[in-house]
């Protein structure tokens, strides 16, 4: 599988994402600089975490309008897989690849810790390596991860099985104490209609080896590879 990572000025988890993709695919992903308008021919584009362009405006708002994102959007409409993690989720949501918006965390503070993550669907190339209902331990690290959408959109997401992950307790129970940012209906990650685009706040790339204290993120990358090959 060929993959690429889009790098903006201010991206900072592109190295972590690169390590995860390399582990899963056996090759280095292509790093694409934000000013590039031509995207190489790849099977997957990953939009990494960080503070694109400083994120002094609404998170991801400027990156969403960058030339490279227009290209990513066009390819996604053609069926290429796109995954946006953290700032990447904010960016692809701002770009309209996914519905809703990421607001400031409910307690207004940056939060970095491992959270429980319940797999809500195994019906996508990103989550096929998990069982529905499985509970993962994956870190979050963000200031603006409070997912919000209007009730109709949320109902639609649920009806179409497009909620990929929810924050949960160790046994999978949903409760606000387990939700690190106040997101609506405890949503941590969602899919687009065609199920080829995933956005999520947690960092599966920081849970891929024993050093990380959890390897629960690994299956996300390996299942993407398997879906393509």
């Amino acid at each position: 599988m060929k993959s690429a990572i889009v790098v903006f000025p201010g991206s900072n988890r592109e190295g972590d994402a690169k390590a995860a993709l390399k582990q899963a695919t056996g090759k280095d992903p292509i790093m694409v600089w934000h000013r590039d308008t031509a995207l190489p021919k790849v099977d997957l584009v990953l939009v990494p975490g960080g503070f694109s362009y400083g994120d002094y405006l609404r998170c991801g708002a400027i990156a969403a309008n960058s030339p490279v994102l227009r290209e990513v959007k066009a390819r996604a409409e053609g069926g290429m897989a796109v995954i946006g993690i953290c700032n990447g989720f904010q960016i692809i949501t701002e770009a309209g690849l996914l519905p809703g918006v990421l607001l400031r965390n409910a307690n207004l503070k940056f939060v970095c810790r491992n959270v429980g993550l319940r797999v809500e669907t195994s019906g996508s190339r990103f989550t096929a390596g998990y069982k529905k209902g499985q509970v993962l331990s994956i870190p979050v690290a963000h200031h603006d991860g409070n997912y919000f959408a209007d009730p109709r959109t949320l109902d639609e997401l649920e009806a179409e099985d497009r909620i990929a992950f929810r924050y949960c307790g160790p046994e999978g129970r949903l409760d606000s104490v387990y939700n690190p940012n106040g997101s609506i209906r405890h949503i941590a990650g969602i899919l687009n209609k065609k199920r080829n685009v995933l956005g999520l706040m947690p960092h599966p790339e920081n849970a891929i080896e024993p050093l990380h204290g959890s390897t629960d993120g690994k299956a996300l990358f390996t299942s993407m590879v398997e879906a393509v090959s």
């Binding site: 988890r13 190295g15 972590d16 939060v111 970095c112 810790r113 690290a141 960092h203 920081n206 990380h212």
Partner: peptide, 14 residues
């Protein structure tokens, strides 16, 4: 305090 700091970025925090 330290949950407000990203202590994991770079992926090498042991």
């Amino acid at each position: 305090v330290w949950e407000q700091y990203d202590h994991l970025v770079m992926g090498h925090t042991a």
